[in-house]
Amino acid sequence: MKAFSSFLGKEFQESLRTYRALIMIAAFVALGVLSPLLAKMVPDLLNGTDMGGGAILRVPAATALDSWGQFFKNISQLGVLVLVIVDCGITGTELARGTLTNFLAKGLSRSTVIWAKFVAASVVWTLCYVLALLVTWGYTWYFWGNGPLPHAFLAFACLWVFGEFLIALLILGGIIQANIYGALLAAAAVIIVLNLVNIAPQAAKYNPITLAGGTVNLLSGQNSPGDYLPALWICLAAIVAVMAAALAVFDRKQL
């Protein structure tokens, strides 16, 4: 346990020293501000546009739900992109540089390394996600007032779980290839495959990608929790499976 906490401390120091934590925080706060801004701007920009033939575009004024819709869209696209860019070197960089060999030679277990990296990245992701959420919450309340948000916890938790899934994938990819490209490839490949699977409408309910972005329909009451729970369970199981694979691969890895 002591080995775990000291390696975790080293991970946190490193994410501060390499600016990773700061970039994530700045980016997610910016996304949190951007979401209500876009929601507010779109009707102002589009209203009164001449569509040709005398038709004039009328867009209803923005509501709190538009702001949350933008939040889910921005975080699930730009936010996830930032997460992947920032964390793509999570395991690969140290493997490529060979700096882990020292720790392991001194008796640090390999599973401790993996779990400490997972926990460190998860803490930063959780912090950033909650910050973005609070900022959007504050602005949405300021501009429109927050009405009832049904199943808010589940809606927000879904996207968070998807982020955790990506972190696990980045760890596994980085271990397999021992560089940042392995991690990028693993995350990109899985996102592409999941998007392809989503073409089949029956699969959407079980597809983890549904958790990224689709959950605004929970807040609007259009969908019920039952539409997301299967995907949520599958995603949680996938996180466990990916982490198990990462541990197994890392145990057999020649350093």
């Binding site: 390499t18 600016y19 990773r20 970039i23 980016a27 910016a30 930032v82 860019i85 793509c88």
Partner: peptide
């Protein structure tokens, strides 16, 4: 905006 500096710090920055 935003993505440029992030890219720099994440992948462009040399070893400190």
């Amino acid at each position: 905006n935003l993505i440029g500096p992030i890219l720099y710090f994440a992948v462009g920055r040399g070893e400190t």
